[in-house]
Nucleic acid binder design. Structure first.
Length: 275
DNA sequence: CTCCAGGGCAGCG
DNA sequence: CGCTGCCATGGA
């Protein structure tokens, strides 16, 4: 994909507040952004619904962003992908009025993070791979998975036997992916159904699948279905909750936006572990 | 060498 | 219900 960059040029400049590409790239929600340089990223554009969408080259200078796509592509896809329709100013005010010093510190560090609306199938597969794994290895496995067919493999795109290739580094998760790809082939209605469901209904449906438990399902809900009330608790979040909130975290205060707060907390925790 | 990573499952009691 | 051992793999 890197060779695409030399053939791309910026067509437009946009002003956007509360958006920091590098923070998002390091926030553990996307595994396929390609860092061209510290302020420029190449973001894959294909999705289950549109497999030939061009990638987005985007360069940040403060709150000014050079982008490679047309106005139409921006309005029909990238604006939603980058969650620009959500009022992050309001979330900042909510945090500042919370009386929670730790959340304020996390927000100070990662206020440019947004919850991306990524491809649903990609999130299902990616977060199946993520279980009991680390971000570097997840990134590697996803990249090698995409190299098989030149884009992220959707149901039917790959022979599931090739998932056993040790080169992919999937470990014991091979069975989970094979089961998921088989189910996706036999039940193509799943990807149309899930977006119609409520958060609770989507959770219930997702955890039926082999290898998807509460944490993976929450990540799919948060990053693939944009249920921003979803609050995934992984090993990092478990540790930070025990460390900073021994008497309990006030989820209720943030209501339907708790998942966004979770991402600020997660990013801060990751940063303070030397990632 | 052990421990850990954006966990979940099966097998217990 | 909750608890425990196990599941591949590679980097620290």
């Amino acid at each position: 994909m890197g060779s695409d960059v030399i053939n791309m040029e910026f067509k437009n400049t946009r002003t956007i507040n509360n958006l920091d590409l590098k923070q998002i790239a390091e926030s553990g929600q996307c595994f396929r952004w390609e860092e061209v340089d510290e302020s420029t990223f190449l973001i894959p554009g294909e999705s289950y619904e549109c497999r030939d969408r061009e990638p987005l080259l985007i360069r940040q200078k403060g709150n000014s962003f050079d982008v490679s796509c047309s106005d139409e592509e921006w309005d029909s896809y990238w604006r939603v992908y980058l969650d620009l329709n959500t009022d992050y100013e309001a979330i900042g005010r909510l945090i500042m009025n919370s009386g929670d010093d730790h959340v304020k510190e996390c927000y100070e560090l990662g206020s440019g993070i947004r919850i991306l609306k990524q491809d649903l199938w990609e999130m299902i597969i990616t977060f199946l791979i993520s279980q009991n794994n680390n971000i570097g290895r997840i990134t590697g496995s996803v990249k090698k998975l995409c190299n098989i067919c030149g884009h992220f493999p959707y149901p039917g795109d790959i022979d599931i036997a090739c998932l056993e290739n040790r080169e992919l580094g999937l470990g014991y998760r091979v069975k989970f992916l094979q089961d998921m790809y088989l189910y996706g082939q036999e039940h193509p209605e799943l990807l149309a159904l899930l977006p119609k469901l409520s958060y609770a209904e989507a959770m219930e449906e997702l955890v039926k699948r082999n290898g998807i438990g509460p944490k993976v399902a929450n990540c799919v809900c948060l990053f693939g279905l944009h249920h921003v009330e979803a609050f995934p608790v992984d090993t990092h979040v478990r540790q930070l909750l025990d460390k900073y909130y021994p008497s309990g975290f006030d989820y209720g205060y943030y209501g339907s936006k708790a998942g966004i707060i979770q991402q600020y907390l997660f990013y801060y925790e990751l940063k303070h572990k030397g990632n």
